[in-house]
Design a protein around this nucleic acid. Structure first.
Lengths: 233, 233
DNA sequence: AGCGGTAGTATTTTCGAAAATACAGTTTGA
DNA sequence: TCAAACTGTATTTTCGAAAATACTACCGCT
């Protein structure tokens, strides 16, 4: 056995930097690292137990994803949130998701259909288990992400899929805010089922319309009930 | 005067890492660094005179832009080119540019119009100076990029503008290939003028149609005359 | 008092060595 | 002969110190 038995556990990815990026991404989207918070290396070094260089690489990755912003020679901070950013992000996501879902419906084969159905089924199981609001459940979040991914999986565009994923991550913070502030849960399960039906029924126009509304409604909810959170802008 | 008078010149950006990223970006899009080429740190260290860490940060940035690919624990290589990638990229660019030009035409004020006209004018001056093909001229490339940027500048979407810029950079390699292999120069100047007229004439439908064709035609040209370059795939 | 400059401190950025990991060539055992 | 384990080398990844840069508080001057 290796003498360096106490070396760091890497829970995600192969390198320490990608592992730390993963952990920080999590803390940012759950707002444990607050929007706009400055990220000083000394603090981070203590928190994550890694060196300057490694942290720097992780931060560079997250900056590329838009979750942190880098000001040269002046360090990094958690990307701020704002109404303008939410609206911008929402519009971008709708543009891309609508295109990808249409192409996915055109290209998707039987396996794709099966994947869509199986992922919504998994989502349903988790929703059925939880008595109260399931949107906080990390397991639900994964299944939710995977359902949406399954819808666009057959689009055939690696470039746009990568961009879509990055925008989806960026929107996670706003989804969490929406869940915390809405007066009562939306009928997300129903929306998802309708999406699934339109997809496997190969009704592209309807699927596009539904996905646009689905994405937009989270934004509308935040604007309605939580806009005072963005008073700093 | 400072004693460290011989410190490195930073021609671009404030940090050495961003400067090196800038230089490498250039070498990649001009194919001086060949598609698929493995980027070993020892070699790079010699070529760019920077340390592991600094190079690593530059490479991480470029990886986020899609110009290099990172395989964990196995280093970096220049992003390969392929017909599939070109087609994917083209479709993504058209989707985004069409949306942004439409929104820009909706939102653009007088200053925007002036900026569009002045940037095409600058392009025209450069084209008029050069007797032979101007597409190799770096000055023309800058002016060309700035003209296309001016068209979408008023769209009001920072997110999509950032994505657009990154896709534009990625397409640069293919533009260079197209310029090298096409039998005779396309009437780019005419296409650009028509785009400008549609934009300032606030004819969004026409501008969208023109920009889509404009982007597509480079791709068609590469497919027609240079597809044997991609034989590795 | 207000402004401009300056020294001292906090923080980021860069470096090259050291550790960890992958790769290639060789040997061993069936 | 072939596959699997091993060993040495090449390469990447990580570290903490050192250099460069930005920030702050103080001082002197008008």
């Amino acid at each position: 056995m290796n003498v360096t038995a106490f070396k760091r556990r890497k829970e995600f990815g192969k390198t320490l930097a990608s592992d730390i990026a993963h952990r920080m991404r999590n803390e940012i989207v759950t707002c444990r690292l607050k929007p706009g918070e400055v990220l000083k290396f000394d603090t981070l070094r203590l928190a994550y137990g890694a060196s300057f260089t490694t942290l720097r690489e992780a931060l560079t990755c997250l900056a590329a994803e838009g979750l942190v912003v880098a000001e040269e020679q002046r360090g990094f901070k958690v990307a701020p949130i704002s109404l303008a950013d939410l609206i911008d992000l929402t519009r971008a996501r709708i543009l891309i998701d609508v295109d990808l879902i249409r192409r996915s419906i055109e290209n998707g084969d039987d396996d794709w259909e099966i994947a869509v159905i199986s992922s919504i089924h998994r989502l349903g199981i988790i929703e059925g288990r939880e008595v109260e609001d399931y949107a906080d459940n990390p397991e639900w979040k994964v299944a939710h992400r995977e359902f949406h991914e399954s819808l666009v999986a057959a689009c055939g565009s690696p470039t746009l899929l990568g961009i879509r994923q990055s925008l989806f991550e960026r929107a996670e913070r706003y989804r969490n805010i929406s869940a915390r502030f809405r007066p009562r849960p939306r009928d997300k399960a129903g929306e998802h089922r309708a999406l699934m039906k339109a997809a496997v029924g190969r009704d592209a126009d309807r699927a596009c319309e539904l996905i646009a509304k689905h994405i937009q409604s989270t934004t509308d909810n935040v604007i309605k009930y939580a806009s005072e959170l963005f008073s700093q802008n």
